[in-house]
Design a protein around this nucleic acid. Structure first.
Lengths: 404, 404
DNA sequence: CATTTTTGTCTGGACACCAAATGTAAAGTT
DNA sequence: AACTTTACATTTGGTGTCCAGACAAAAATG
């Protein structure tokens, strides 16, 4: 039960009920499509007349389409309804150090086109290149009604102002990405932290998350970020700062981290940490990785994965150590938040057969027996980020309306 | 924005709008009472006619009372409305090892009577004694409409079944406290973890939490529990297990905790930890405290506080060390959750002049500079728990309705 | 005493949901 | 082939709610 915030609330009007039921209808169509009005009435508990009225509105506004006539054992055959996929064209952009992924998705969250570009170092160049590609995609798919652009970023941003608050890996702090991209493309832009988008991706599209309302995503790359969904909604906190569990001290008086703290989780469980373990074991330069160009760094970790897969003992040991520390941090999340699901995202999941059991074992040893949290691996990046940023925009239509 | 859970949702009816607006009205009356209908219309943005209609309903159902005629500079004088305090008599029970606190509160959350009893070891005896006192209070205050009993417990409980899931300090696991107390008193009973009630107390009654929607309570006693409020609502998680940050490993390979883990936060920052520090420094028996009867143990920590206040260096050093570790754990919460406010609850707040600065300093050293979390001390126990369990029940009437 | 200002109520219209009747269409039955 | 049954979908009348504006009531002002 939520407290009503008297500094910022809104009363209900006579249209509030319709708003609520319309969103429920859209969700039911999304889940069961193609589906008849009668079925929708049964699923929702609304009267058939009400369902017809809502459907009529949604058909008028092009959110739904009437499809083929369906089959039934006896009686009049139903006229199926389904989402009008073309009603929303959504651009998802996943900005990573070194490389930027772009995608076009429809109302069903299905991808129609994907593209990658090297992430320009210059901010203005980034805006130019991205808006140019968006323009070209818009002309390639003229049948869509374009609704917006979502950007997944390694950083934290303030929702109110739309500005990036904290982004050490990109260096775009203080840049007004939202406004710049909006004026360049003419489409509304939404920003979100990449760990949060990973969480949203699993929450809205995950197969193992049916009925789940508490979920934490652990996004493992150069660093570690966490996206936290509790009570069925993303937790952003003031300035979107919630979720920096990667900078929690796991090792007392441990390695100094760029954040100023010591012994941060991400110093021991990130891709970079694994490369460090590998380098240290080989008694070579321990600074390897950090000094390389970001995209080359990604390749270094993928090489480590490949080496381990091929049976290299040193690479395997580095991954094992990384997995151990991943487990320690995840145990902390299990104890403290006890979500239904923790989903691990990142290149490391490609070696899940190896790291998964180590993580599970470590978590079991360091957490309550009562906690029933499932720990699962997500698909390979960059898909979770792109799917998640699309989910963020779909939420606008399919999420529960904000009331009171 | 919340995702709609299609396994468990409810559609809007024609009364949904009224339900929403009625709750907003109740909140506005609570905040501004005594207040006129015209003022309520201005505060809410509803039409005066609508406000009158809602007020009429609430007056009929005795939630509101029409008070004195107020003053105004010009024009017709307003007829003031205020909450009918007697409309709800709420019993709050705070069960602690050794001692149980009881209180009777009204719809305004004001306390009318308070009482304490030694916590019986036998569960059945507890039910008997509590229901007997409740019966006696009901006859003393016959003018109330009694709405329920809330119980604050050191443990975790499953909302669905109402059973205690985990309660090492009470030993009432598997007991059906809710049903037992309900059948003994004839009143509906709600259970809640004590750290959660501390959070609710500050959230609903705190003076420094206006407009705050993310708050974490750190309840420090024999152990440490955390109550987490995010996006304006309590996070309970499956089986109410969310919030056991007290059992997060802060010290690698540290002291073994009763939970099975090693180096748990509460092994280093609880009252018991401070007593251990004190005992260790005095080279005496390090098991002191654990072996004592719970209520005597409370007295031991209060004695430590008194000693420190009187200038005892050893006692002061023990508190300082406790404060340091409190700061470490709180820094973790600041980094990971970045709430607007963290409120510390417990006997230790009586020495806030001493421990507050140490906590702040430690948090500052171990967390982001961006985080704007305020760290405050709550009033002395047992008030927060009692106020919080009352808040839990008041939520039923004043919280936002659950929709979709 | 008329005017102005403010509070509170009343009335008609719009919107939404519900329940039941009606219309529509197809399959099964006689 | 005509009738009955079944199921889908729409129409109609009733109720609840909010809104906008008119109206009534009450008190200060000029």
């Amino acid at each position: 039960m939520r407290k009503i915030d008297l500094t910022n609330f809104q009363v209900a009007t006579s249209e509030t009920a319709r708003d609520i039921n319309r969103r429920i209808m859209l969700n039911l169509v999304r889940k069961h499509q193609p589906v008849s009005r009668a079925d929708l009435a049964r699923h929702s508990g609304l009267q058939r007349s009400t369902v017809s009225a809502i459907a009529e509105q949604l058909l008028e506004q092009n959110w739904l389409k009437e499809g083929a006539v369906g089959q039934s054992q006896r009686g009049r055959k139903p006229r199926f309804l389904h989402l009008n996929a073309q009603r929303a064209g959504l651009f998802g952009i996943n900005v990573r150090p070194g490389i930027t992924y772009m995608a076009l998705a429809n109302l069903n969250g299905e991808f129609l086109a994907q593209d990658t570009i090297p992430t320009p170092v210059q901010f203005s160049q980034f805006i130019d290149e991205v808006s140019q590609r968006i323009q070209s995609l818009k002309t390639t798919y003229p049948e869509f009604s374009y609704e917006g652009i979502g950007v997944s970023l390694p950083g934290r941003m303030d929702m109110a102002s739309g500005r990036v608050v904290f982004s050490p890996n990109l260096g775009w702090e203080k840049e007004d990405l939202k406004t710049s991209l909006e004026s360049a493309t003419g489409l509304p832009v939404e920003l979100e932290n990449e760990a949060n988008t990973c969480a949203l991706s699993e929450f809205w599209f995950g197969r193992e998350t049916e009925g789940v309302s508490n979920l934490v995503a652990v996004a493992v790359s150069e660093g570690i970020g966490t996206g936290i969904i509790l009570n069925g909604q993303l937790v952003r906190g003031p300035f979107g700062l919630t979720g920096e569990f990667g900078h929690v001290s796991l090792v007392e008086d441990g390695l100094r981290c760029s954040c100023g703290n010591r012994g941060c989780w991400e110093m021991y469980a990130s891709n970079w940490a694994a490369l460090r373990y590998f380098a240290e074991a080989n008694a070579s330069d321990s600074k390897r990785g950090r000094d390389q160009h970001p995209s080359r760094f990604v390749h270094a970790f993928e090489e480590l994965l490949r080496l381990a897969e091929q049976g290299d003992l040193g690479a395997g040991a580095a991954l094992d150590q990384m997995a151990h520390y991943l487990g320690l941090g995840i145990a902390l999340l299990v104890n403290g938040l006890a979500p239904d699901v923790i989903v691990v995202v990142g290149e490391v999941t490609r070696a899940w057969d190896r790291v998964g059991p180590i993580i599970s074992e470590t978590v079991k040893r360091h957490s309550f027996s009562q906690a029933t949290t499932r720990i699962i691996a997500s698909g390979p990046a960059p898909l979770p980020r792109l799917r998640g940023i699309i989910a963020l925009m779909l939420q606008k239509r399919f999420g529960a309306p904000s009331i009171a």
